[in-house]
Design a protein around this nucleic acid. Sequence first.
RNA 1: AGGCGGAUAGCUCAGUGGGAGAGCACCGGCCUUACAAGCCGGGGGUCGCAGGUUCGAGUCCUGUUCCGCCUACCA
Length: 882
Amino acid sequence: MRERELPKSYEPKGVEEKWYSHWLEKGYFHANENDDSKPTYSIVIPPPNITGSLHMGHALNCTLQDILCRWKRMEGYNVLWMPGTDHAGIATQNVVEKELAREGLTRHDLGRDEFLKRVWAWKDKFGNYIIEQLKRLGASCDWERTRFTMDEGFSQAVREVFVRLYEEGLIYRGDYMVNWCPRCRTALSDLEVEYEDEEGGLWYIAYPLEEGTGEVVVATTRPETLLGDTAVAVNPKDPRYRGIVGKRVILPVVERPIPIISDAYVDMEFGTGALKITPAHDPNDFEIGKAHGLEAVNVMNPDGSMNERAGKYAGMDRFECRKAIVKALEEKGLLRKFEPYVHSVGHCYRCHTAIEPYISTQWFVRARPLAEQAIKAVEEGKTRIIPENWTKVYYEWMYNIRDWCISRQIWWGHQIPAWHCKTCGEISVSREEITRCLHCGSGDIERDPDVLDTWFSSALWPFGTMGWPEMTKTLERFYPTSCLVTGFDILFFWVARMMMMGLKFMGDVPFQHVYIHALIRDEEGQKMSKTKGNVIDPLRMMERYGTDAFRFTLAAFAAQGRDIRMSEKRIEGYRHFVNKIWNASRFVLMNLDGYTPGELDLEALTPVHRWILSRLTHAVAQANKALKAYEFDRYAGVIYQFTWHEFCDWYVEFSKESLYRGTTEERLGAQRVLVTCLDTILRLAHPVMPFVTEEIWQHLPVSGDSIVVAPFPKPEEAWTDQALEEEFALVMDVITAVRNIKAEAGLPLTKRIKALAKASGNPLAVLVREAPRIKALAFLEEFKVNEDLQRPLHSALAIVKGIEVYVPLSGLVDIGKEVARLEKELAKVTRELERVERKLANESFLKKAPAHVVEKEKRIHQEIVKKREKINSSLEMFHGLM
RNA sequence: AGGCGGAUAGCUCAGUGGGAGAGCACCGGCCUUACAAGCCGGGGGUCGCAGGUUCGAGUCCUGUUCCGCCUACCA
């Protein structure tokens, strides 16, 4: 027997801990790869960085996944939600290096092996922090399977992929211009560069002609790179420079002659139409330099300082050097002009240092062949992106994909499984550690010191976590995954690459659906960031308002295609909703004396109870539909609307008649319907509010071990009763009308007065039948309904659905108030009438609009005309009295 | 430069060619045997602007303004 009493108020803290550990104990979140009896549903978590702590983005992302997983689990699926964390190469290395810096050390002081030990130690200590926070959020992951992108099995997958891509020629190594972060001292992929407009300058520098007296003026935003100039280029069509192509200019400061070349790339409109060419420090110049066979003079060190090729500027920081060069040019009288200039500057996405285009030897993935499959898979519908408009963004990027620089000059990560032979100079790539060159057998080999881009391993996440390269039971059962839930900010970084790798190595897409959710912003629509100080800490929100209220808020605002503006006030608002459910449950539980469980007998139930069941099944249908369509906001909205404004506001109040004044049979019927509704609401809401629903559900007289594994509600077609819903719409309108009259007349709602209604036909029968409830909810001492009632003198009038409701007010209120109320009503009705009459006067409308629309307008017209007549005559009556 | 969103009540946002909605905020009333974290009632709108299609447009089309984001090698 379950406890029937709930405490006065809901205390989330203890309840959440209690049930979460209970669920873990019962193993509800564990997916069984050997279970053939159920359909499968799988999701891999976007692995959070081990350096991270739970922020709003994680909270939203995981709440949505948890909703899906809990929903599917309740629907009887074998659900795998694969959890884990990402080693986050640069980010983690940065964190540990900072820690070292506090001890006055650099990673080079420790050496590679010692440093890596430090990182692992750090990971063991802090790396699981975020996992614990996800548990706090209620995430129903299969924690027994928790993976890490650097664990042994995963490393094996990474090596396997690298070797196979290398063998197929899809990975190559070479000297190219890459994005270089001088602070992290590593190459970055194109995606890892964030461009921002910065106020810089455009310096116009004169390059004197070697022969004669002329000069060529070039414009540049980066004067310091002049040290590495190896040409000046002009457009071949530019008449201004036609005569001097092929001649040479003297590179200022360096005092070295460099050629004037012509290249169609040069924009005649920009600056002076002459462009300095620095092949080692600009991607375009690099290309032009290659085309013209120019030398690339690298004047910088990997840390962004100037190197020995910069002559007397050697050792100077690049930005210091810029100033120094400008000063030198001024002194030499070669600076022709300066103008402020806003241009886009790339920054490292990890440390925000301005990146440097830099030539170095790097490893690349040839992306195009992989992208072709990834495009095809989406075109063929094997993977569906939701909302659909992201599909176009995905295609756009895939069509224009460029090779992917995957080597990083850091230590924390998957070291590239390639060895350089000092004897024959060849590269050996191998799945296993090797000690001899695979080409010449020499033992004088050295492993490539670089590690792989973190995203290279993340790309393998959907199958790497399931045991690949072994073809495990888990893979067979759960790959491809059902859905990936993620933010659009990593669509290219991660989703696109998982698509490519999944198709390449599993021969199938990694996920059937990709649901792209919004970004969370602050109240003003600003991106949340620590530097702006506008972050809302999810843990504090859960602490303060309870996890369920927090999760419900996230879901309620997760409308597709729009960012979420989050504020604490909203979370507080939804805590009220949690409280509402709690109190409604208390009401139900404290009215279960004499309750016995049993099937609902529709025939035996009085109309009001069948009415709420009809509404309930409608809500259930809508919630199911919303979840299927990933409309989390609607799903939450349906629960909110039905629970609060239909179940609590109306049905609970109606049910009191049956509970307090009904027959034993009626009372039991009401109890069963109350329990059914509440049980259904709880099961419907469980995916989004797991804790409070479990806590209440465990008090309900229903069978089952846990709401986690209780069936998700399905619409009961037999409960739908459209006619009954219309009848109660009328009943509620009548009640509202009486309440309105009272309120506008300045009477307290609870003031017991009389009311009359003039109706006929079915409405008459309905109002007679429902009179007890109308009396209760409108606080009437008497409610008289009849076909031909005499309207009492001094009575207020309301017309609902053609039915006249009279509320005698003599002696209760001054007539002026009622007149004012009626005049307001008249104005409204008149406005409406004008609209309808305009429409019905339009012949084209009558001719061309569908018949049912015309019929409807005519019906409305009749109704309004009648209503207006009544109001008018009522007003006349009152005016006569005044 | 190209692409994608958004613009509807004071705020945040739904809205499916056919009586403009919700939540919060606001105003007024109320301890009503679940809930004052509540209940009841109410006021609030040129649906960014201009055209067009249509019997009918918040909704579809074209243009336009503002805001946000993404992609891109403009020195």
